[in-house]
């Protein structure tokens, strides 16, 4: 048992979002009512796909240009909006780097519209040069980076209590195993809409909410002059240090 490197504890509910969120009506009809069964972690839970790049294209780290979107298969013209550079490290609960993990990144365009049939009713324009999604791979230090344009805010459609989603970036992370799978969102520091976002504020612990908000990177530390930089470390479940007993 001691030879097994990764252990997983149940999530602490204070640091995770509530299942039901006031004003977010989809949580009413889609969340199970009959509770959750506690089960032991076995090999199927502590393993996961480590070679997904065989099947998924992980080399899509510039979302500001639609890959293959231009003529002759060349990269497309640049999307409208403020160029951003986002970087950080993917870590486990010991602070160890999670290497070679795919991170999927998607978000609205600079006007607040998604490339998705679910957003066909959006009042905001599409951007023919914005594809809206990419992927990158963490390196030996767990570091990832991507270029994109800053997403716009948008009002949540068809809700009786109207509210805005602040600019945010969706992240889907595989980590080291089934139990480290994480889907989350990254927010921007200092945005006035953060304080009223029902999704960000569904996490009870203020420190938990802070873990979803990126930090500005000083301009002198950026690799190029045309981007605004944001740093965002992500921690996925999993620990090598302490037996978890589950």
């Amino acid at each position: 048992m001691d030879k097994l490197p990764n252990r997983f504890a149940p999530y602490d509910d204070r640091t995770q979002p509530a299942f039901k969120v006031e004003g977010y009506k989809e949580t009413i009809t889609r969340v199970p009512m009959q509770g959750f069964y506690k089960r032991p972690a076995t090999l199927t839970e502590v393993t996961g796909p480590l070679n997904l790049a065989r099947k998924l294209d992980a080399d899509l780290s510039d979302l500001s240009r639609a890959k293959g979107g231009g003529r002759d298969g060349k990269d497309g013209a640049r999307a409208m909006g403020q160029l951003i550079f986002v970087t950080g490290r993917l870590l486990d609960e010991d602070g160890s780097p999670v290497r070679n993990s795919i991170i999927e990144v998607w978000h609205a365009n600079s006007a607040g519209r998604y490339i998705h049939k679910m957003d066909a009713g959006s009042p905001f324009p599409e951007d023919p040069n914005f594809f809206g999604s990419g992927r990158c791979l963490t390196d030996h230090e767990g570091r990832y980076q991507y270029i994109s344009i800053k997403p716009g805010a948008y009002p949540v459609p068809n809700h009786p209590q109207r509210w805005w989603r602040p600019p945010h970036i969706h992240l889907s992370i595989f980590g080291s195993g089934f139990m480290s799978r994480l889907v989350t969102q990254m927010f921007f520091p200092g945005d006035p809409l953060n304080a009223q976002d029902r999704i960000l504020n569904s996490v009870p612990d203020p420190k938990g909410r802070e873990r979803m908000i990126s930090r500005p990177i000083p301009m002198m530390e950026l690799p190029r002059a045309d981007v605004v930089g944001f740093a965002h470390d992500i921690v996925v479940r999993g620990s090598r240090a302490t037996p978890m007993g589950i």
Binding site: P17, W106, Y114, S172, V183, Q185, M212, R237
Partner: peptide, 25 residues
């Protein structure tokens, strides 16, 4: 417990990109 706390989960939302899906996924 480790010394780092996992980042909160968040909904995948309604806009998970259709072009993330390959034909054999």
């Amino acid at each position: 417990m480790g010394k780092f706390v996992p980042t909160p989960s968040c909904t995948v939302g309604p806009f998970f990109p259709a072009h993330y899906f390959g034909p054999n996924d």
